[in-house]
Design a protein around this nucleic acid. Structure first.
Length: 274
DNA sequence: ACAATTACCTGTATGC
DNA sequence: TGCATACAGGTAATTG
């Protein structure tokens, strides 16, 4: 599931693979994935345009275009955005194709269509729900330990639910919430307000460590995720709790517990996470 | 102001 | 073999 590390990996791939290459043509094959404008208009804007850079905000990928427009992509659950240098047969659920100079194609594929694309006319992002109210970037160098502790002051609610809330902090989804909390040795069932200073600092440190390591590994590929070149990531091999319910805790050897929080399956170690 | 639930989707795995 | 059901968990809207 594309969370911050997966989107960041795609961003890096695309920055290297498609920046500066002219878009020869664009075809929207399923209009539903184009969210805030007419598909024909999007095709028109992209044609003869080119990406000058790619940015990321939380789980959103922002493609800066030469025209000044910004193409915003959210991969949802099963979305894939990748370049094929020598176009092969279209995979099912390919909803948008950008043909690049030289014959390569940038394709958006999404089985469940929870993902989608938006076009912004300016640099501001208030038109996209979610982007406007998004919390701080967990890897922002400016988000120091001190800032983080102060930021959490006065906030409460189920800890894992809050980590999944993009308004608190950007880019964390179900996989990394569980992995981060395990690394912290803190139970997902705790209330955010109950964390003492040491625990808040641990959360800051482990959140940044896990996300950074996952990016270094190219993200987690469970079922659908591939990077901007169509390749799977490697961090799924280093998951210590996600998808391991009932298996032995890598620290204490006891079977990992499962529960549901905010409607999401949650795996944790009752012994190691307090 | 928060939490829980549901809708949106479809492929995959399971049970009978 | 078929069919029904549960599950995956991204965001947004709704309800409590």
């Amino acid at each position: 599931m594309p969370e911050l590390p997966e989107v960041e990996t795609v961003r890096r791939c695309l920055a290297a693979a498609v920046c500066g290459r002219r878009i020869v043509s664009c075809e929207v094959r399923h209009p539903d994935v184009v969210r805030n404008l007419e598909p024909a208009l999007l095709e028109e804007v992209l044609r003869n345009n080119r990406f000058t850079g790619f940015r990321r905000r939380g789980k959103y990928l922002l493609g800066d275009l030469e025209s000044g427009h910004v193409l915003v992509v959210h991969l949802g659950m099963t979305g894939r955005l990748f370049v094929v240098e020598t176009p092969c047969e279209l995979a099912p659920h390919t909803h948008l194709i950008m043909e690049l100079e030289g014959g390569a194609e940038l394709r958006f594929q999404d089985v469940r269509r929870f993902g989608g694309l938006y076009l912004l006319t300016g640099p501001l992002d208030h038109s996209i729900p979610g982007l406007a109210a998004m919390g701080p970037e967990p890897l922002d160098p400016g988000l120091t330990e001190e800032h983080w502790c102060r930021y959490l002051e006065g906030r409460r609610g189920n800890l894992k639910a809050r980590l999944l809330d993009q308004r608190l902090v950007a880019g964390i989804g179900n996989i990394y919430a569980d992995e981060i909390l395990f690394a912290c040795g803190i139970s997902p069932q705790r209330d955010l307000a109950s964390l003492n200073r040491v625990e808040r600092i641990r959360l800051h440190r482990q959140m940044r460590r896990i996300l950074t390591e996952a990016i270094d590994d190219g993200g987690s590929s469970i079922r659908d995720y591939v990077d901007g070149r169509g390749q799977p990531g490697g961090f799924q091999n280093r998951h210590r709790v996600y998808g391991r319910k009932g298996q032995a805790c890598t620290v204490c050897g006891r079977p990992l517990s499962g529960c549901r929080i905010s409607g999401r399956s949650t795996v944790f170690c009752e012994h190691c996470q307090r």
